[in-house]
Simulated scan of single mutants.
Amino acid sequence: MSSTDFEDTGTPVDQDVTESAATSSSAEPAGEKTTLDLVQEALGGKEASPASETGEDQPEAKAQEGGADPKEGESEDTLTEEEKRTLSQRSRNRFHRLVETKKALEGQLSEVKPKAENFDRFVNYLQSNDLSAEDVENTLGIAAMIKKGDAAGAYQKVLPIFQKLAQAVGAVLPPQYQERVRLGHLSEQDARQLVQTEATARLSQYQLQRHQQMAQAQAERQQLERLTAEVVSAGDSWAQTKAQSDPDWSLRKDLVVELIGAELRQRGVPPTAQDVYALCEEVDKRVRERLKPFAAPKREMRPVTGVGSSPRSTPEPKNTLDVLNNTLAGIR
């Protein structure tokens, strides 16, 4: 559905229709967005393209846009002699400024790109190892304390971690196992083995749950992608059908699409293509009903009576006698 983006104003849909009806038929179409944009908003603009400059530079801009591709050996950042003769001095200055801006942006991009790639690798590492922001903050905090020489602070942070690790590998027995060893119910070696076995079982259970969560999240993402594709296709198909079958569609298109976007945000994305069609038809019907009072009344065609008509064409009068003759011929 190629139409303008939807903005939820928070007002009731019927009120939106009434307030917009007086101007919708005469408004110029705005920058349009696709159904995909609308669905993504419902699940969660483009900036309007700058208007073409008017004046003497406008034909020159068209000449630049319609120019042929540079020949082999020529650079896109320089003007040929023919282009220089075609363009005004003002346009040539603008071209040079744009080239300088382009080179500056390319330089900035070359500096930022490696940093972005390193950051992506860092994020992927965190995700693959199931590390949260809190984990990273705590780890870096301990490293910073060690670097600064704050041994006491680092020790207080590391001690609880060390104690948990010691219990997990059986280096330190939990109190319940220490008591059983003391009473002779269990040897120390068997107690350590039991602690390690329990720790391994807990880790396996955690990994299994984590794997199930990741698989479920991936399945939900795939389902969402399929749903989005179906909704986009259904919306585009419905709009194309309206454009071909309804001569008044262009007059209310922007308003209909805007209200469909509001409905998507309120109700969520419909689960099937049939539901998308039903929603679009419902909104379109509501808009047509609201716009009826603003439609121009049709004039009744009434036949002219009391004046005779002649199948023959009447010649243009040249003098007063001709006027009298034509008048008498019309009432015979």
Rank of each mutant, 00 (worst) to 15 (best):
G73R: 00
L43W: 02
E76T: 11
A296T: 14
I331F: 13
R226I: 10
Q223P: 03
S24R: 14
S250C: 07
L264I: 03
G141H: 03
S25Y: 01
L264D: 06
F119P: 12
S2C: 07
V257N: 09
D16A: 12
Q266N: 05
Q64I: 10
Q240I: 10
Q15P: 00
G141L: 08
A296D: 13
T35G: 10
Q274K: 03
E32A: 14
F119E: 15
Q40M: 08
D135E: 08
E316L: 14
G31S: 15
L183Y: 02
E53L: 13
A243H: 07
S88A: 08
A22C: 02
D236R: 09
L173W: 02
E19N: 09
D275W: 00
L126D: 02
K62L: 11
R299V: 09
Y155H: 15
Q266S: 10
E83M: 12
L194F: 09
L126Y: 01
E56T: 13
L87D: 05
G107C: 00
K84R: 14
E263G: 00
T197S: 13
S3C: 12
N319R: 03
L227C: 03
D57Q: 03
D190R: 14
P315R: 02
M214E: 14
P12S: 12
C280T: 10
Q156I: 00
R286K: 06
A329H: 11
E300Y: 00
L183H: 06
A295T: 12
A21V: 09
T101L: 15
L173I: 04
P270N: 03
L109R: 12
T18N: 01
D150G: 02
Y206N: 15
L173V: 01
Q176A: 15
S2K: 11
L194V: 12
K298Q: 13
L255D: 03
L321Y: 13
Q274F: 03
A21C: 09
S310I: 13
L186M: 13
K103C: 01
E76I: 13
K62R: 10
R90L: 10
Q196P: 06
Q240H: 10
L140R: 06
S24E: 15
A42Q: 02
L38D: 06
L36F: 08
R92S: 01
A234I: 04
A21Q: 06
D37F: 10
R267M: 05
V304P: 01
E225H: 08
V169A: 07
A191R: 00
V181K: 06
K157A: 15
L251D: 11
E74I: 03
T139G: 07
V307R: 13
V181F: 06
D37V: 06
G308I: 08
P247C: 08
S2L: 14
A239P: 01
V169S: 11
L173Y: 04
P270G: 04
C280R: 08
D16I: 14
K147R: 14
A199Q: 07
Q222N: 10
S313C: 11
K46F: 02
Y125N: 10
K292N: 04
Q156F: 09
D16M: 13
R182K: 15
T327P: 00
R288L: 14
V181M: 08
Q218F: 08
M1H: 10
Q163L: 09
Y206L: 15
N325I: 15
Q222G: 00
V276D: 04
S250I: 13
A239F: 05
Q108T: 06
M301S: 15
A239Y: 06
K147T: 12
L140Y: 07
S233V: 09
W249P: 05
A229L: 07
